[in-house]
Amino acid sequence: MSQLADKAKGDKLVGEVLAGSIRTASRLISRAEACDSSITPILKQLFCKAGDPVLLGITGPPGAGKSTLVNQLIQHYRKHDKCVAVLAVDPSSPFSGGAILGDRVRMNQHAADPGVFIRSMASRGQLGGLAKATGDALSILQAMNFDVIILETVGVGQSEVEIVRHASSVLVLQMPGAGDGVQSVKAGILEIGDIYAVNKSDLPGADKLVTSLREMLQLSSKMHPWLPPVVAIQANTGAGIDRLVQHIGEHRDSIRSGGEVHASRARERVRYRVVEICRQLLNESVFSGAGVTDTQLSAIANHQQDPYTLAEKLVGVL
């Protein structure tokens, strides 16, 4: 197809996304998941049309109640007439590449609501709790006039740094009985959260967990204008959700009021995103043949050439 026709087609898709077409957005997300680089011109345009939604990441161990909480948050925001998009990531099987994406079950009550867009994504080999196409999907959703975008990670529980690289507010969900304080410190979760919620507060040990999280956060809090609050909630009944939403709003206000800490975090996210895109471009050139020949690969396999030089050459090409 001619370049001109391609551009017209791309412009049409951009227009549809900007007008709020869920179908077009979901098709584009599939193409991003399939690493279809022909959508890059579309993503470029959409990126520059981004609105200013709340961009909330939710992470926490498997079964902590993340999806149940997302369901409550959707309900809350819908009551206030806010449109909500959700990207819910579940793990791919490392053996078959298949996946069972089950987060949506917990949010079924919003299935037919046109003000809610829920998309399930498989991690597809990406480590760290998110999917490879998360960044692209966010570029699409941010151009769509959603008031709130929620990202649910895979239930990991340790070093879910990825979420910090995509979300502007990070909510860490914990539950009683999943380990003691030292484990939270080890897992690095005290460094990534802007807000902490202890779910299943109907279960024994919840109060103690709230108290110990507060203590540890106080100790570890740096010279930061924001001390992360800790809230006890019950995602299956909605108890505590109002207060949690209030904290989410306060964190957003804190971001909006400026300040170097938030600005530098935003720059850090961009830095990471650029590297992520570079990686994908390299991936394409290394694996789809154009950048690397079989002869080169064999020469390296036989130790006649070295991989460092080839890597330098490829990065130079970028």
Partner: peptide
């Protein structure tokens, strides 16, 4: 943190 060798990149769409 992406897995560079992921064969999924080259396979046809899932």
């Amino acid at each position: 943190m992406s897995d560079l060798s992921s064969p999924a990149d080259r396979a046809s769409p899932t």
